[in-house]
Design a protein around this nucleic acid. Sequence first.
RNA 1: GGCGACGUGGCCGAGUGGCUAGGCACGGGUCUGCAAAACCCGCUACACCGGUUCAAUUCCGGUCGUCGCCUCCA
Length: 473
Amino acid sequence: MRLYDSLSQEKKEFVPRDEGHVTMYFCGPTVYNYVHVGNARPYVVSMVAKRYFESLGYRVTLVENITDVDDKIIQKANAEGRSAAEVGAEFAQAYRDDTDRLGLGRPDVEPLATEHIREIIDLIEKLIESGHAYQSGLDVYFKVGGFADYGKLSKQQVAEMRHGARVGVGEDKADPLDFALWKGAKPGEPSWDSPWGAGRPGWHIECSAMSIKYLGKGFDIHGGGRDLIFPHHENEIAQAEGALGAPFVRFWMHNGMLNLGDEKMSKSLGNILTLREILDRYRPEALVMVFLGSHYRSPMELNTEVLEEAEQQVNRLRNVFAALADRVEAGGGAAPDEKTGATTAVALLERVTARERAFADAMADDLNTAAALAEIFGLAREANAALAAGEVDADTATQVRAKMGEMVHVLGLDAVAGSGGDIPVDIIAMAEERQKCRAARDFTRADELRAAISERGYEVRDVPGGFKVVAAK
RNA sequence: GGCGACGUGGCCGAGUGGCUAGGCACGGGUCUGCAAAACCCGCUACACCGGUUCAAUUCCGGUCGUCGCCUCCA
């Protein structure tokens, strides 16, 4: 496959460092509150990438950190009279709960900064020994001027950056561009013992320390939002390569930002910004669908329109899976056909093969999920058409369903292939009652029953020889 | 000011030097007691101005506009 690397700014052929094993690290959220819906994008991108690599037969180790110590967490804790650890733990769990609802599974490792203080201190010591860092008062800073490649990821000129650089209060840096590796403890702050006294790690160092710990030097893919390119990832490179004396990462993968500026969203729904709120209003797979609909590197709109549209797209895929399942359940062969005859099922399987290939090509081209998704929709139309024509036998339906199931699985849309859950018996009873009314041509009563079923969140459809009840949403 | 991305049909959004993206919405039809689902048909675009080319939405230059980053925001 070919993967875009933000450092070289080009698509490159992706071959893992270790044969058969892909190593990935993504920057997760800082948990000072419920996560913003924007935090869901790198999570979804990384999980889909993992699934894709797995579909190619690779073993994948995906590490995604959770930053549970930083200024905002401390601020919130102090404002609420709680400990920073308590606030961090609460929202780290909320983050896991929220992303769990997306149904994509969990990264292989989700390290917390506070549980890796030892590794962080070790890395800082290495940087001091190699002359890349220095102690100043109770703080330790990285010496940017001593790292020749500084700026290579963000394409910034060090001299230019120096113009606008600010130095915060209480900081005593040799160069305004130097950044904190270790911050001496101030009153009311959580701290850990270190060779430089009690303090806490700077933001960037945890990712260098933890990614190296779990994935080693020169691992395959390091990802996160574009906005992290500078300073976060630039600094990670400086720290890691300064300490390792070797390349840190092989591919830098950055997802585009979400555009939430749509006034309709804020007007009608009151500024939905947290992932939690979105998931309370829309099916999780609809949000995943929205993410898949645009390329991961592109900026993306997120508003009520696109979410509602995605709900429709989810319905469409659900329907075709349900139709295939029904065909399988019905069993038997295809209805004899006048023109196309027995070859139609074969033709459909050929379409499946062609679509699978196009799907694979799209994903192999820098994870083009939008194009891959188009293949699934195309196949949905073809399968529906063949089903409607009665040209699909149960065996073919089984195969088509399995192949489509594999495709939606790679994209993390397993939910659309599911049975949709059991229909409550009383709903079934109402639908049966309705059938009797229809048979008796009591359409008024039949329509009342359908309305009642609809109010319970289900939809009854008349199909040849009976009826079908589906969850409305 | 510096770095980077981007301007596609009613909306979202892929992609390409000449060949239908896809979805949603909309209109017409088939089916149907009604409806839904599904299928068929229609809707055919590429900011603007130059240039290169037999041919540009697709390459090059410029203009206008939008967005992200430029010290701690995915």
